[in-house]
Amino acid sequence: MSMREFDFVEPTSVSEACALLAEDPDGSAVFAGGTDILVDLKAGLKHHQRLVSLARIEELRAVELTADGALRIGATATINQIARHQGIKERFSGINDAAMSLAAEQVRNQATVAGNLCMAVPSADMAPILLAHGATMRVVSPVGERVVPLREFFVGPRETILEAADVVVAIDVPPPAPGTGDASLRQGGRVSLSLPMAAVAAVVVMEKRICREATVTLGAVAPTPIMATAAGEVVTGNELSEDVLREAGERAAEAAVPIDDLRATKEYRLELVKVLTRRVLQAAADRAKG
């Protein structure tokens, strides 16, 4: 066994979890699905004296679509809870896209949406679409609860605003306006079990053929998932013509600051952003129900 010893605690309430984390903030880590943290522990990249599991906290498991159309994803809801949720498939197709694209079946059965965001890798599959929907994170700490917009959540690669004794308890997605369509697209080296070289998500509000609002977000092409605000502005107030889509792609690429790495070159990523932006905007618009 390559992992060093650790203590595994399974509190049954959020307040208990916070208290356990606060006892030893530097030596503790929150444990949910474990698909990221165990890889790091096995590789010796990290060591934690204590893992605080959220798995036995009943209230964190739920995925709820409320009557007004809002979506609440509990902290330990798995990727497959999202991918198999019929209501999400219909009302947040883009979130379904992202969930279906993450890793493979075994990982989707285990990994959590909140964990995908909290690990804050730039290529996190769930990040662009949730960012585009204006999702917020509900964070509980020993001193109270706060709401953090996802757009303020990421600080850098594998870095978030979370403090050591913070526990993300839910992700809230506001109800989409009438006429909203969404989509999330990514390009990896292969379809499954690969991180994307680039990912683009879009949420658009259509009124007949005119786009009234558009939000475009990017993953894997900057230190964090980012908004491509200018790309959305190009589309807003227009029909999605070939020219408009092309222009949106160019603007999205201007927002990207990709790096060369083992998965792709900077140049290739910029091309992907252009192409994926066009496709994802079209897909989102096609799904919009007026």
Binding site: E10, G34, A55
Partner: peptide
């Protein structure tokens, strides 16, 4: 695990 596929290498026995 409960009828759903999981990687046993990525699951702790205590979990």
């Amino acid at each position: 695990i409960d009828g759903r596929t999981r990687y046993a290498c990525m699951t702790l026995a205590v979990e």
